[in-house]
Each structure stands twice: as structure tokens, then as C-alpha cells.
């Protein structure tokens, strides 16, 4: 075998390998689970979004703000569901913020807490312990403190968060925010804006 023929064989093997990797090994889709307390909007909407989020991630805060503005304009056109993907090795308050959110969700107050927590992310993210702020936000959101504290101490809430993160990892998620917009995977706020604009071309 000469050098050119060997090159050709190796290139062909690599092409087959890359095509195989693209076709068979990359997971892509995630469907909406309609039973969650962390969903809002019209369940029959033409745009269904699953959002994997780390509450301490700045890009997630930006994505939340963008979606909230968009949602306020198009309440009937979007169905949004949030799932947990705390980057605990990177953000020290990722798990505790997710726990508060999950416990708020169990009292039907997920969005009320989310509306307080995300805009103030840059403040509580700097704290050694953000729990006093979260407790105060919880009260403001109308969450029962007794139930909240019982939930925070339970293993179950943490289990839900870890299970959702494992589900996300099985779908190929490694970073946040990651969205599935009508089952299409979109990562980051910029791609979110680009993808949403394909459904609402005028940006209105």
C-alpha cells in the first residue's frame, strides 16, 4: 500500500466514523411533561419550551428575563416548563436555589419565587449563605415557611433535582441554559433568541 492509498483509507474510515457518531450516538429530543408544577402557559400552544436551568447561572437569568418578556407579550403562544440542572461544581448556591424553587413549586409558588429570585441573582450569588434572602423572598411570594422548611430538609426534593439533572445529562446537556423548543435542542440565550425569532419573525 502506498502513502496516498493509506491516506485515502484513513480519511474514509474517519468520514464513516464521524457520520456514524452524528447519526447514532447524539441524543436530541426531550418532550414536555404536562403534569409538572413548574410549567406555565397554554398547553396547546404552538411553541413548547422545556428549559433546563441553573438558578445561579448568569446566562440563565438573561434567558429567564427574555422569556418572561416574550411570554408577557404572547401568553397563548408559548408553553414553558422548567427543569433543574444545577451546576453544583461551578456555582456554590446552585443546589440550594434549586431546592427553594422545588419546595416553592410544591406549594404552587414556583413562578412567584422565580420572579423574585432571578432578577436578584447577581446579589445573592455573591453571598456566603443566600438562605436568609431566599427565606425572605419565600415569605414575599406567599410560601408557607413551615412547609417550606420541612421540604428543604427532606431528601425527596433533592432527589427530584438530581433525577432531572441526570435526565438532562442523558439528553446530552452539559451547560446551562439548555432549551428544547418543540423538541429541538437549543443551548444558550443567543440561540434561544434566534430560534424563537423563527416562530415569531417580526420579534413582536
Amino acid at each position: 500500500m502506498n502513502k496516498l492509498r493509506a491516506t485515502l483509507v484513513i480519511v474514509l474510515v474517519l468520514i464513516v466514523f464521524i457520520a456514524g457518531a452524528k447519526l447514532f450516538l447524539v441524543p436530541k429530543k426531550d418532550g414536555i411533561n404536562l403534569q409538572t408544577a413548574r410549567a406555565k402557559g397554554n398547553s396547546q400552544a404552538r411553541v413548547k419550551i422545556v428549559e433546563y436551568i441553573d438558578f445561579q447561572c448568569p446566562a440563565c437569568a438573561y434567558g429567564v428575563k427574555f422569556l418572561k418578556t416574550f411570554f408577557d407579550k404572547h401568553p397563548n403562544d408559548i408553553y414553558l416548563q422548567v427543569r433543574y440542572f444545577p451546576l453544583t461544581k461551578m456555582h456554590r448556591h446552585a443546589m440550594v436555589s434549586a431546592l427553594y424553587s422545588e419546595c416553592a413549586a410544591r406549594q404552587g409558588k414556583f413562578w412567584a419565587l422565580d420572579d423574585l429570585m432571578m432578577p436578584q441573582q447577581s446579589q445573592w450569588a455573591q453571598l456566603i449563605s443566600p438562605e436568609p434572602i431566599f427565606q425572605s423572598m419565600a415569605l414575599q411570594a406567599g410560601i408557607d415557611p413551615k412547609q417550606l422548611n420541612a421540604c428543604l430538609a427532606s431528601v425527596d426534593a433533592r432527589q427530584v433535582i438530581n433525577n432531572e439533572k441526570s435526565l438532562g445529562q442523558s439528553l446530552g446537556i452539559i451547560s446551562t441554559p439548555t432549551y428544547f423548543i418543540n423538541n429541538k435542542m437549543v443551548v444558550g440565550a443567543k440561540s434561544l433568541q434566534d430560534e424563537i425569532s423563527t416562530y415569531f419573525p417580526t420579534g413582536k
Partner: peptide
């Protein structure tokens, strides 16, 4: 990168804010 959805690497590239879309 090949064994991960390409969107993950796209996000990394976007974070550098150097290329057009």
C-alpha cells in the same frame, strides 16, 4: 465534541463573542 450535541460547542463559541452567527 462529536459525541455531544453540536449545540453545546456552539454555545462555547458564542461565549467568545468573536464570530458572526
Amino acid at each position: 465534541k462529536l459525541f455531544s450535541p453540536y449545540q453545546n460547542f456552539l454555545y462555547v463559541i458564542q461565549s467568545y463573542q468573536i464570530f458572526p452567527s
